[in-house]
Write a protein that binds this DNA or RNA. Structure first.
Lengths: 147, 147
DNA sequence: ATTCATGCAAATCGTTTGCAACCCA
DNA sequence: TGGGTTGCAAACGATTTGCATGAAT
């Protein structure tokens, strides 16, 4: 079970044979400060830079996959041609789904998984064992639906 | 109801105020020759180039969104950092789902939609009206499962 | 004749890489 | 000490853009 606390970073890094550096702490710090957002690597770099001006782009780009490996973040693909990251919530084994409003662009997270039955059907029909999924729904959110 | 036949291209282009050109016909021709594949813009360009050497990259890149608008293709995002296109099948109102094998990389299409119930639940819980979806399942296909 | 489409090359954008200097273990 | 890590700048790959030419209506 992984914890999202920043204090565990050192330990997790050590376990994987990575070195503990200020830069890695900085990137995690920034990402944790933006829970619920879907920042691109570029945006994360800019935020890191603002707080810690000496950190280079390459470091941020190299750190994000490490944080992903350690279970702190995972990538979200919003189809805009850049890698985006989202904080991995504690106790969440699967990625959650995203509702993307075509009107205002708001991204809502779906807390429920809801796919168990479908995944079973797919196993029955295709012999495909599902380990993870990425699900995006496009439509109109409740706010925009009223207008 | 749209038809996937290449003969309708001229008409659809005309309806939208686009001009009918050999290049647009060529791109559609190539895409139709590769039904079932998920070619990147780059790959489509190379295939077009092979058959019609005078067509430029920019034209292919400009044509694909037009074909998408006309309903001939839609984009698939396989997370490899490039735009991929797939032929839109006749009579298919929603995008189908993809099963991506983490072992051999094979991409299988799921013919059934299976999401109606979930979409209803999401409407009930979030007030979000779903118009389309992108669903990818990652796991192990039947062939790889046996090894 | 007008407007839109094309090909080319240059520009852009996000990301990766090579490398010398640097710092953690 | 010694190998992973960093910052910088250059390299990269996919895609887009400006522009003068060319083709379609």
């Amino acid at each position: 079970m992984l914890s999202n606390s920043k204090d565990d970073l050192s330990q997790l890094l050590r376990e994987k044979g990575y070195k503990i550096t200020e830069q890695r702490k900085a990137v995690l710090e920034i990402v944790m400060e933006h829970d619920g957002e879907h920042l691109s690597s570029q945006e994360i770099y800019e935020l890191v830079k603002k707080k810690y001006p000496d950190v280079g782009v390459a470091t941020v780009y190299r750190t994000l996959p490490v944080l992903e490996e350690l279970g702190y973040v995972y990538t979200v693909d919003l189809g805009d041609g850049c890698a985006r990251y989202e904080l991995q919530r504690e106790g969440q084994q699967h990625r959650h789904h995203h509702l993307i409003c075509e009107c205002c662009g708001e991204i809502t997270e779906v807390k429920d998984d809801l796919l168990d039955e479908i995944e079973k059907k797919i196993y029955d029909n295709y012999g495909f064992t599902i380990k993870d999924h990425r699900v995006k729904f496009y439509g109109i959110c409740s706010k925009c639906g009223k207008c």
